[in-house]
Design a protein around this nucleic acid. Structure first.
Lengths: 330, 330
DNA sequence: TTGTAGGCGTTATCAT
DNA sequence: ATGATAACGCCTACAA
């Protein structure tokens, strides 16, 4: 049973007081360089690491972010969370934060978890995903002044808090522009039912690009649930219409998979493993970048002297541009 | 700024001493039921939650498990970790444990992270994935008597520690048996280079099932890296050989995807979203069950009075049987 | 069955 | 620039 190396051990070893050791760690400017050196040597020699628990008790901060891991709603699109989480853990570590995982069945359960995590574990901040209209989670956290960032825009009030998101419209615009450059003039869009911020955003990029080219989107867009079967049906329906498309832009790889059955060029969204596997072109979200920004925003919120007041921390927003990954089928 | 509700607040509210409150929480049998009742009411009324930090300082336990989130090596097969993590967070919560995420580039980096997590955060246990031959991580943890479970067998010494795994051989055996029942007699196997415990295990299920049916596996197995392209090439090579297969069993969905190009029946492994999306039959691992067992084993290790000595905790192993998911292509 | 008195390791306050 | 001391919230002897 190895004895724990505490700040006291280090102090003795370096012939200073515990307070000096603490200062070296937290307020180095108060300590003479020569003394710092001695303390650092002692720390290295003894392999000392500060106890988070003790530090947390004193400061009330846990150096912990929490993020929810959701059940993979749609098998195809699920794996993007994976990459986002990896990015989060990856960038949090160098900033000396760790990531706590929790699951929750719905918004209500998630809020209950917030409460537990905050009061028992003293969590420093939350990263929310899958934001939607009138999200109760953001207001709950805001009411309690708990720092948080969302990956996904708050579709109601864009400036209400810090967020990171990917510009879906830019993605579908790029996809549409690419197909236009290939000579296509009637480009169909397979989308989700209107009302979801994400789906509407992606739809708009396609529509705007067509409009810029002097084309009309009339009769070229469909709304279905996010499944390959639905996509196939919708694509066929468009083909049977008066203005049969010669190519498709889709709201997701799932829908794209269905559209592929038409044999026409298709561009999906999210660049999931499925797209990679079957050679489907797709719009790729920069997930680790997004995660990096989330961490950066939170760290800015947390590691800045609070003495300056919260007014000095206006919410910051980051909108990343996705990239078009072209594969052999297009 | 809401005042923190401590054990003292509760004690005052219930007209008892702090000690009694603590007892109600940790040793209820010492407290008269009537008193317990009063204390519980006070706890509920005040919304008290014990501070993990304080408790941890006193007890040395953090009620935290750590698990590594790996970069998705192979896009197709990556998303299984997702579901495992979700299962972990899901089952840990009711047992009042939380899951901490970390990333590490390799075994060496992961061990460094162990060290940090252990000394700074007092982690209670680790869940390791992707175990392999001569895994340095397990011995490092074992040397320091840190509780851990692996998801994946230690291929060297099966009884050296607690683990949970999925019986790959049973999976490929079921797949092979299914194809046999369809009348196939020459069933090819697309596998990985020998030496990986997982790959060898899956190969053996196929070979054994053929043998039981009085068939020989000679010339029907290939070894390639885990990519669809490789799978396609390997499948074609077998078809050009003297004993062309009429169906394939594969070590992964990636390889299966390649084999599909032959137009013959194919069964993959892992039941990834890709399989779901394209209607590929596949062997599905019970991931949330596996995660549940991991938590169960760890809790057994941690929440049992240590007074009885570690000898009372022989390592326990769980081998789960995967299930064959048949889809329209087979 | 209940109350009192430390102490876990750290940081903040105050004095030197 | 450095050092002594108290306090964070909880648990656990020990005493009543």
């Amino acid at each position: 049973m190895a004895e724990r190396v505490t700040i006291t051990t280090v102090a003795r070893h370096a012939n200073v007081s515990v307070q000096t050791v603490s200062n070296v760690l937290n307020s180095p400017h108060l300590v003479r360089p020569e003394t710092q050196q001695r303390v650092h040597e002692a720390i290295a020699a003894l392999g000392y690491r500060a106890s988070q628990a003790a530090r947390q008790m004193r400061t009330g901060r846990s150096r912990l972010f929490a993020v929810r891991i959701e059940p993979t709603h749609n098998g195809i699109d699920g794996s993007i969370l994976d990459r986002f989480l990896h990015g989060l853990a990856d960038t949090a570590a160098p900033a000396r934060y760790r990531v706590l995982l929790y699951s929750a069945a719905d918004d209500h359960a998630e809020i209950a978890t917030f409460d537990d995590l905050l009061s028992a574990y003293d969590l420093d901040a939350f990263v929310l995903t899958s934001t939607h209209h009138a999200d109760p989670r953001t207001s709950w956290l805001a009411d309690r002044q708990v720092p948080f960032v969302t990956f996904g825009r708050p579709w109601d009030r864009l400036d209400s808090h810090s967020w990171v998101d990917v510009d879906g419209a830019a993605g579908t615009a790029a996809a549409t522009a690419h197909l236009l450059s290939q000579g296509h003039r009637r480009i169909g869009f397979l989308g989700w039912p209107s009302g979801s911020g994400v789906g509407d955003d992606r739809l708009s990029g396609w529509a705007a690009t067509l409009a810029e080219a002097g084309l009309t989107p009339d009769g070229l867009a469909t709304e279905t649930s996010n499944e390959a079967g639905e996509g196939a049906t919708a694509a066929r329906r468009l083909l049977d219409g008066p203005e049969p498309p010669t190519a498709f832009v889709c709201c997701s790889d799932s829908l794209a998979l269905g559209a592929l059955q038409t044999g026409l060029p298709v561009i999906g969204f999210d660049d999931t493993p499925v797209a990679h596997a079957i050679g489907l072109s797709s719009v790729a979200q920069p997930l680790s970048e997004a995660a990096g920004h989330c961490v950066r925003l939170l760290v800015a919120l947390l590691d800045t002297p609070a003495a300056t007041g919260p007014e000095d921390h206006p919410p910051e927003q980051v909108l990343l541009t996705p990239s078009l990954v072209l594969r052999h089928r297009t």
